[in-house]
């Protein structure tokens, strides 16, 4: 076989993709909703740490801010895949929120369901998050989309500029430039 290397390259990439993708872990424990008593013990500051990812969930679930925003979190704000949760506690009951967080009740987010079924939140974590959401009601909401966009566009221009500088000596038309210059001098 003449061109083994290219086929090998293709197979390696495919194999790695398949093999590494299979390494995802199985669910660690069955989900349980926080009880009313546990909710009352929620700590808003802990909730904020968990929400923003400074602290990790016990079962390694992803931090909330990847998809949600609560008040003024982070210089560029929280995520926007899911709804903004700044005032969620005034619109929904605690039970509904705990239901979504724990995947156990009637109100369930279809996007969050598979994610947090694999890595469920502990009752304490649910309580902390609820407390954090309650504490943030009425906070000014961050909206920095324009800033993200502006920074990204500026970065792109910077990258283009860098390419232009690195390749400033690239070969451009030789004949046309030479002839035009010579004709101009003759005139």
């Amino acid at each position: 076989m003449k061109h083994k290397s290219e086929i090998r390259q293709l197979l390696i990439v495919l194999f790695l993709t398949a093999a590494l993708a299979g390494c995802e872990g199985a669910p660690s424990e069955s989900p349980r909703a926080a009880s009313i008593k546990e909710v009352s013990l929620g700590n808003a500051e802990n909730g904020r740490q968990l929400f923003m990812g400074y602290a990790h969930f016990e079962n390694e679930g992803p931090p909330c801010m990847g998809c949600h925003s609560v008040g003024d979190n982070g210089i560029l704000g929280g995520g926007a895949l899911g709804p903004n949760l700044t005032n969620v506690t005034t619109e929904k009951t605690d039970d509904d929120i705990i239901s979504v967080l724990s995947n156990t009740g009637i109100v369930i987010s279809p996007v969050m369901l598979p994610i947090y079924r694999d890595d469920p939140l502990t009752p304490q974590e649910q309580a902390d998050l609820l407390a954090f959401m309650k504490a943030s009601v009425g906070e000014r909401e961050t909206n920095k989309e324009w800033l993200v966009f502006a920074v990204s566009v500026a970065g792109t221009l910077g990258a283009a500029l860098a390419l232009g500088i690195v390749y400033r000596h690239r070969l451009r038309s030789v004949r046309r430039i030479m002839v035009e210059k010579a004709e101009k001098e003759l005139r």
């Binding site: 993708a21 995802e24 931090p63 929280g78 926007a80 993200v148």
Partner: peptide
């Protein structure tokens, strides 16, 4: 841009699906 932050949710939607 519309559904930030993809870097975060990508790993918990597309990745487990793949």
């Amino acid at each position: 841009f519309g559904y930030r932050w993809g870097a975060a949710w990508f790993l918990h939607t597309a990745t487990p699906w793949m």
